[in-house]
């Protein structure tokens, strides 16, 4: 199979009911969820580091990161607090392209996304590559506001939205699945909205 870089296609047609995972309700607002105050991260001070365990593999400044290949994703998103929002439009750099730019061919099995405010969340690497996830810098064509995770946030739309770490500053590959901040506090290690994996043990 030859995958076309940067092509994600239109959202395949489905009815509203088919697009809403169990236990979710549709909203047209964009609610905010966070554990503390909103960090104000200036783009001059922003950086993004790719790590293999403790070892940094590549690091970009804001300007350098924005020169990486750009892609767009329009996806439905599902928050563990039971709201879903359809057709959210994002732009940024696919994880595939970040890895290619860093010369990483075969990343190891698990990843932890780290944020400027010290929080983290774990995602299997397979859920980040193959056109599934990006580091987003634009929402609806405009810079992502700080309350929604700007300047840059992870976007892994097929998992509950806490996995789409706000204020991302590093992606760290790990040999084993290591619980992040919320996962240590009772949230599910994987977080599939279609299987209602909200909390540990679901």
């Amino acid at each position: 199979m030859t995958v076309t870089r940067g092509f994600t296609g239109k959202q395949r047609e489905k009815t509203e009911a088919e697009r809403l995972p169990p236990g979710q309700a549709l909203t047209t607002d964009f609610p905010v969820l966070s554990a503390g105050p909103t960090p104000q991260v200036k783009t001059e001070a922003w950086s993004f580091t790719l790590k293999h365990g403790p070892r940094p593999v590549a690091k970009w400044s804001w300007n350098g990161f924005n020169q990486l290949p750009q892609s767009k994703m329009t996806r439905d998103i599902h928050c563990v607090t039971t709201w879903s929002k359809f057709n959210t439009a994002w732009q940024g750099v696919m994880i595939d392209d970040i890895l290619a730019a860093a010369g990483v061919d075969e990343p190891i099995q698990f990843a932890l996304a780290h944020s400027f405010d010290g929080y983290s969340t774990n995602i299997p690497t397979a859920d980040l590559i193959g056109g599934k996830a990006m580091v987003a810098t634009l929402y609806e064509g405009k810079p992502i506001t700080p309350d929604h995770g700007g300047p840059a946030r992870l976007l892994v739309p097929h998992l509950y939205f806490w996995k789409s770490a706000k204020w991302i500053n590093a992606l760290q590959f790990t040999e084993r699945d290591t619980a992040g901040f919320w996962e240590e506090r009772g949230y599910h290690m994987y977080g599939d909205p279609w299987r209602e994996q909200r909390y540990s043990g679901d």
């Binding site: 619980a179 009772g186 290690m189 909390y199 540990s200 043990g201």
Partner: peptide
């Protein structure tokens, strides 16, 4: 050994 937290389902 996995260090995943093992918590009973709620």
């Amino acid at each position: 050994a996995s260090k995943s937290p093992i918590t009973p389902a709620i």
